[in-house]
Design a protein around this nucleic acid. Structure first.
Lengths: 340, 340
DNA sequence: GACAGAATCGAAAACGTTTTCGTTCAGAAA
DNA sequence: TTTCTGAACGAAAACGTTTTCGATTCTGTC
């Protein structure tokens, strides 16, 4: 009752294992007649190649690793979906791992994938990752890496991202367009490239529209949680400083902020306008609904896989791979929280 | 620059490959001295066993498959997290696949996992799965299967679930306790075991408290979406029938319903009280916040993996495996939408 | 010095493929 | 008849482990 092997097909047709293997792969040096015979027998005996043996022989696993900071996360789970679907179409399997936004764990995950002998790695860095030795180690043994969303700018590999600076600029400009004159920013972790760029976009918009930039109106969120949003909203209320608009680094934080502000009797958007980032589902159903920046996740996953896939193929042909950086578009979604 | 092999360690110490292999696995028939020597050399040469070869030799992959209906889904992504973490602790890798709530795709996924030669399968069935031939096929080749959340009651395997009937009963009872006398139910797909059981729990509660059961107050949701919630809320308003409470099969549908009801000027909880199911994060931040049934997801993932893990081990020892059904507790979370 | 028994090691097979390189054989060309 | 060509097939090595079983060495005992 065990799996059919080439051996068994060979025996049943009284030919060699070699010929069976070649027939199934349609080698030119086996006659059409035997090819048909073998394929029929394989079908009949329900032959499925033994993955372990194939892997050992070909030295590849048709498997890639996908490392993300968090799994229970609308953006990342959506990326995962895109990657998995695209991988499936191309005969690849994906191993999903999470770094829990922690460089040390991220290192372990990479090492795990190296040991598992995956063919390539897709990764969105943890926010506190500032050194890339673990990635270089993978590259040293010729493992192709493609980064997405949370990248290290100095790592020599392909990248799939959005233009966070531009998006931050647009979000801030949206508040200005709605009449805000004193705009605060809830920024993300200091080492997160996304957060840095969105922050710069925020500053750029203020400058361009001749609004005063005041460092004390920038609130730091060490993590992307609802609680942090509430906490910073409280700080802002103590300090206030005439703020009439807030550009928040992430929807989840913005939702926390809105909740806290409402509890303190602040009217949104009348007293303070708010725009978030990411266009999470929950932003559309809270009261008031949250304006935000739509950011592609599902397609980012698909594109990330496909660039890795093409690198894998070039790699197999020993062709030179040119690293590319793909920038996906974002879009302002205006809702109640920024009504003019 | 390629990976170190047992061969190379053997050569460097002038002993046989056999001894190296045995030393690394601390066989009793190799001296302590050589064991140390070998382990030191392995460390020095940065030896990592070749997974492909190990798999082929041992005929196991230390990999399991996990099939869920949807990845971008708070409940299931949380299960995934639990499974992956527990797997990692025990040296297992997990391949995550989604069935998109579609039996045909589910069959393909199972077949894929069989071909990939995973050691076991964890699955939450698609809602429209009513035949289990694809699962029996896996079991026929001795692949252990553990089902969770969305199960087929007649499949002979271990299961990790909640008591949906009881939870449905409790949820309905909660509405009754809050003073509702005419309670509607938004039920899920007709073939989903969860939905069936919750529906029965609903009926049981009505009976026990002598409230009239009226089939026309049961609204059918073929899928678990926000839109379906709005749609059914609209139907309910047309029909109304004096309904003052709704037990909704899923938080997402409940949120859609609340949104629609608010748009029609219905006050919640004054006019109609609502309780959902699942305790999704968004339920706590919408207005009014949604009462719901807390349902373990992360722990369900952990426990599901662990039961599969123990079956895998028994399987290896050729021990008989006794199938068990583990029922995890649920809890009513009372919020604004059911204030008395 | 002989010998039993324990301690230590290694040869070889096996897992199931893929691919290189020969071999065979029929028929064509000489 | 001999030689050559090309089509069709197969033997064997290789991928890197693990494990069985036989061989060797060592220890201590009489």
């Amino acid at each position: 009752m065990s799996r059919t092997t080439l051996q068994q097909i060979a025996l049943s047709l009284d030919i060699s294992v070699t010929t069976v293997s070649k027939a199934l792969r349609s080698y030119p040096d086996v006659s059409k007649k035997t090819i048909e015979k073998v394929k029929a027998a394989a079908e009949l005996l329900n032959y499925k190649p033994n993955t372990f043996a194939v892997n050992l022989r070909t030295q590849e696993s048709k498997t890639i690793g996908l490392v993300i900071p968090e799994i229970v996360h609308q953006f990342f789970s959506s990326v995962v979906k895109g990657v998995i679907e695209e991988a499936e179409k191309n005969g690849y399997t994906v191993i999903v791992l999470q770094s829990s936004q922690n460089t040390e764990i991220e290192k372990k995950r990479i090492e795990f994938l190296i040991n598992k002998q995956v063919d390539g790695i897709l990764i969105a860095l943890a926010d506190d990752t500032v050194e890339y030795y673990h990635l270089f180690e993978a590259q040293a043994i010729d493992l192709p890496i493609v980064m997405f969303d949370k990248i290290g700018k100095t790592v020599p590999c392909s990248k799939v991202i959005i233009d966070d600076l531009r998006a931050g600029y647009e979000a801030t400009k949206h508040l200005i367009d709605c009449g805000c004159t004193k705009i605060a920013h809830f920024r993300g972790p200091l080492t997160s490239q996304n957060s840095i760029d969105r922050y710069h976009g925020y500053k750029k918009a203020l400058e361009e529209y001749n609004l005063e930039f005041d460092e004390s109106n920038v609130y730091h969120c060490k993590e992307m949680s609802f609680e942090i949003g509430k906490e910073n909203a409280r700080k802002l209320l103590n300090h206030r400083n005439g703020v009439d608009g807030i550009f928040v680094n992430t929807d989840m934080i913005a939702v926390g902020a809105i909740t806290e502000l409402k509890e303190h009797g602040i009217n949104i958007p009348e007293d303070i306008r708010i725009i978030g980032f990411g266009n999470w589902f929950l932003s559309s159903v809270i009261t008031p609904s949250l304006s935000t920046v739509e950011q592609p996740s599902y397609t980012m996953g698909k594109i990330a896989f496909n660039t890795l896939f093409s690198e894998l193929n070039k790699h197999k042909e020993n062709q030179h791979v040119e690293h590319e950086t793909i920038i996906l578009p974002t879009e302002i979604i205006a809702r109640e929280s920024t009504l003019a």
